[in-house]
C-alpha cells in the first residue's frame, strides 16, 4: 500500500473520530453539560458540602499515599524485570500483571478475608486496636493493589529500549550505581515514569470496586469521590452526582496537564 487514496484516508479518520466521540467525547461532554446546566453556583454548592469536601480530601489523601509508593515500587520492579539476573522472572512478571487480571471487587473481598474481623489477621488486629477494613489503611491497600502495574508496565519497555550501554559508560566513568540511577537511568526513563504516574493517579482517584468493598461507605469517614458519585446517583441526586463527576474529571485533566508541563525539554 504505497499511497492511500484520499477517500480511504477520510473514511478512516471519520471512523476513528466517530468511535472516540461515541465512547468518550459525548458521554464526558454530556456530564460536563449536565453539570453546568443550572449555572456554576449550584455546582459550587454541590461540591462544597461537608460530605463532598471530605470525599475530595480523602480521595487525594489515598492517592497521595498510593501514587508515590507505586511509583517507587514500579520503577524497582521494572529494573528487576529488565536488568536483574534472577530466577523466577516469569513468575514476577505474572504477579505484576495480577491486578489487571483480577476484578477489583475480588481484590476487595480478598482484603476482607485477610484483614476483616473474621479474617486471618482480623482478631489480632482488633486486639491491638488497629482498624484496616472499613477505614483508611484498607482503602489505601486496595488502591495500591489495583494501581500496582502501571508504572512497572510503562517503564519496562523504555528500559529495554535504552539498553544498558549508557549505564555501563557511567560505571566506567566512575559513577556509583546510585549516581548512575539518578543521573543516567532515571532521566532516560522519565517519560515512561511520567506516563505511568498519570495512569496510576487516574486509577487511584477513579478506583471504585475494590475501595467500595473495603470502605464500608461511611459518609464523612470512608467515602471517596467515586463512592459519593454512586451514592448521589442512587439517591436520585443527579445534579450532585454530575457535579462530583465533573470534579473527578477535572482532577484527572489537571494531572495530565501537570505531567506534560513537567519537563518540556526535547532530547530526540
Amino acid at each position: 500500500m504505497l499511497e492511500q487514496s484520499r477517500s480511504t484516508r477520510i473514511t478512516l479518520r471519520c471512523v476513528a473520530l466517530a468511535y472516540l466521540a461515541l465512547l468518550l467525547g459525548i458521554p464526558v461532554g454530556l456530564v460536563l453539560y449536565r453539570t453546568f446546566e443550572h449555572g456554576v453556583g449550584a455546582v459550587w454548592d454541590s461540591v462544597t458540602t461537608p460530605a463532598a469536601i471530605h470525599a475530595f480530601s480523602l480521595t487525594l489523601e489515598i492517592a497521595a499515599i498510593a501514587v508515590p509508593l507505586n511509583t517507587v515500587l514500579g520503577i524497582l520492579t521494572a529494573l528487576v524485570l529488565v536488568r536483574g539476573r534472577i530466577r523466577g522472572k516469569a513468575i514476577l512478571e505474572a504477579i505484576v500483571d495480577l491486578p489487571f487480571a483480577i476484578s477489583p471487587v475480588v481484590v476487595g473481598l480478598a482484603l476482607i478475608l485477610v484483614y476483616g474481623r473474621i479474617g486471618w489477621f482480623g482478631p489480632w488486629l482488633a486486639d491491638h486496636g488497629i482498624a484496616i477494613i472499613f477505614s483508611l489503611p484498607g482503602m489505601v491497600l486496595a488502591t495500591v493493589f489495583v494501581s500496582l502495574p502501571f508504572v512497572a508496565r510503562e517503564v519496562s519497555p523504555v528500559l529495554r529500549e535504552i539498553g544498558d550501554e549508557q549505564e555501563q559508560a557511567a560505571a566506567t566513568l566512575g559513577a556509583s550505581s546510585w549516581q548512575t540511577f539518578w543521573r543516567v537511568t532515571l532521566p532516560a526513563i522519565r517519560w515512561g515514569v511520567a506516563y505511568g504516574v498519570v495512569l496510576t493517579v487516574a486509577r487511584c482517584i477513579g478506583e471504585f470496586g475494590a475501595v467500595s468493598v473495603v470502605s464500608g461507605k461511611i459518609a464523612g469517614q470512608t467515602e471517596t469521590l467515586t463512592l459519593l458519585v454512586e451514592k448521589r446517583f442512587t439517591n436520585f441526586d443527579l445534579a450532585g452526582a454530575y457535579a462530583a463527576s465533573a470534579l473527578l474529571a477535572i482532577i484527572a485533566l489537571a494531572t495530565l496537564l501537570a505531567m506534560t508541563r513537567l519537563n518540556p525539554r526535547k532530547d530526540h
Binding site: Q166, P187, A188, D267
Partner: peptide, 9 residues
C-alpha cells in the same frame, strides 16, 4: 563503545 553510549538527555 561502538554505538557511542552517549547520554542522550
Amino acid at each position: 563503545f561502538q554505538h557511542y553510549a552517549a547520554f542522550k538527555h
